[in-house]
Design a protein around this nucleic acid. Sequence first.
DNA 1: TGATAAACGGAACATTGCTCCGTATAGTTG
DNA 2: CAACTATACGGAGCAATGTTCCGTTTATCA
Lengths: 191, 191
Amino acid sequence: MDESAKRPGRAKRADAQRNEQALLDAAAAVFVSSGIDAPVREIAAKAGVGMGTIYRHFPTRADLIVAVYRHQVDACAEAGPALLMDSASPYVALDRWVDLFVDFLVTKHGLAAALGSDQASFETLHAYFIDHLVPTCDQILEAAIAAGEIRADIGAYELMRGIGNLCIYADQDSRYDARRLVGLLVAGLRT
Amino acid sequence: MDESAKRPGRAKRADAQRNEQALLDAAAAVFVSSGIDAPVREIAAKAGVGMGTIYRHFPTRADLIVAVYRHQVDACAEAGPALLMDSASPYVALDRWVDLFVDFLVTKHGLAAALGSDQASFETLHAYFIDHLVPTCDQILEAAIAAGEIRADIGAYELMRGIGNLCIYADQDSRYDARRLVGLLVAGLRT
DNA sequence: TGATAAACGGAACATTGCTCCGTATAGTTG
DNA sequence: CAACTATACGGAGCAATGTTCCGTTTATCA
């Protein structure tokens, strides 16, 4: 799991490592203040590097976003089995896991929108979320279906896209509560 | 209701009227092929007018979008009372009306996203939808609540935003069926 | 037909994503 | 420690797009 465990070539140069970390820190800060659609120049400037450097380390915006949020996505994925164990029923576990997912999404301005978009530049982002979260969601969903608590005609991917969509622009409108809508959606799953 | 019923000044010049119509026609066509985010230049070119002309007639993109879809929005709004009369129950009317709304949204590439966005340039668009559709939705919702068919803790605005969000990017992903998700959301309203 | 207000068109500027290449340097080797 | 080379850097520059501004054209009217 160590970063330096890259297959063949030698390790990165020291300045390259420093710059990559600086970019991650800068991006995390800028994403909070300006959303994940913030101008590339702003991130580069905050990190104190040139345009060329940011594109060398993170060829697409999606690569940068994934790098910044990887740990949180992984944590969400890993929380699934534990919830399934600890909860009174699979449906309760589903409800709790969805809460985790929603909490993550609504605090990342613009992320939910990027997730739904099929812009080629977001391919990596899309793939990371699908690969890491769909299996977990599917596991919970299957358990709830097996327990007869929810209808069987919905897939993990489609449910997660629906939840993601409900979280789009959720932080821009005080009259709209994404958590409540997601709650209704999950309620609609009940048999 | 006539267009020429503008209060004080005299009627528009003939060439201005022609250009406005040409712009509406061009925009309608371009919106279908390239979505409502199509470059302004593309619309102006298709209409055979200069950049200045399009901005003079429609200062913001939202103004143009509203002008293009006004009739369809109005039709959706006016369909509400009829559905309430003709349906077996308010809940059925709600279900049917939501179908109309979803059908409208999913066939307008990018419109649902623009509706949710709080970009200042979409203010007019937002306002038009709120003003014209929320009252209708509210009427159906209230009837369903009065009939005890759905829970009472959801407002028309919030529901419509949720439906709108579920329709975002719906035409870009064959694995995602907005109608199904909206169906689940509405099902979640049942008492 | 001439005057004038209305409308037009497109050049020009600003923002932003992305690329390219000349320059600088970390790490290595003799 | 000095020279060398693979890496990495930086930012100018191009392309796309939104938006404005103003000199020119034209519809309308007397």
